[in-house]
Amino acid sequence: MKVIECTGLTKTYLRKPVLNNLTFSIEENTITGLIGRNGAGKTTLLKILAGFIQETSGKVRVFDDGPFNSLFVSANSIFVDDQMIFPPALQLQEILEVAGSFYPNWDMKLAKGLAKYFDFDPKNYHNRLSKGKTSTFNSIIGLAARCPLTILDEPTTGMDEAVRKDFYRALLKDYLAHPRTIMISSHHLNEIEDLLEDVLLIKDGKKHLHLPISELKEWAIGIKGPTEKVLELTNGEELIYENRIGAGTMYAVVKNNFATLEIEKAGLERTPVRASDLCVYLTNDSRGGIDDVFNQC
């Protein structure tokens, strides 16, 4: 069953398209990573799916319903980011209790257990929390709500490394025990890639790639060796990324269309490309990255 279906989804702000003709669908009970550069449209997309803002054109279906102004979508989804607003008069323990009355699947034991583990004072107030603590608390709400559609927009902003690791493990453990559809956006693909089943990569508001993470890892390869030999072998192929090292050595990333033997016979080195690096290369506007700026000076 498909939980999310978008067809030609477009959102414009002041006539400038933020999301441009997006078409994709998300299967039930999968964890999908939404990856894109700053300003690619990740948050806009997630907020449309949660029903917070309305699409300009195209079709959006969440649980087979238009999410904007849908009570059904609201009751079955949660959107977590570091801007969640809670009543300032309530203590953290009271927020947990009130949240419990909103979400039918709420697990108070989990919420309290996590709050204790992450060292929250139940009598503290939400607006007094630090940046990292705010993200942690909001993520606890997101996990304990156990919504059939859980949307996490940069959930680990400000969290320190240990907390991030703990949070990802808590997310996975709770997902194993209570499968649900999770969309998680992050700048740190290398941190979350193990958790993911699928990756949705967007660039300039358009869908760039949508495929299982295991295929993404084998989607491209790096070829290293003498520049002229690399160019000869990759002749006609699109170079996703290139880097010239020293005088005569070149590293190029291309689609995985080459046999290993073919590369080795040419005296070149074949290296796997990390999924997170590949995503950076794919979303760069220039093939040489930041070095291009300096090379033109």
């Binding site: 996975l172 194993l176 993470i213």
Partner: peptide, 17 residues
């Protein structure tokens, strides 16, 4: 696949593969 997912903190679909 679920035991492996929990042991290695990976997606169960990856473990199944």
């Amino acid at each position: 696949q679920y035991q492996l997912a929990e042991m290695y903190t990976i997606n169960p679909a990856t473990a199944a593969k």
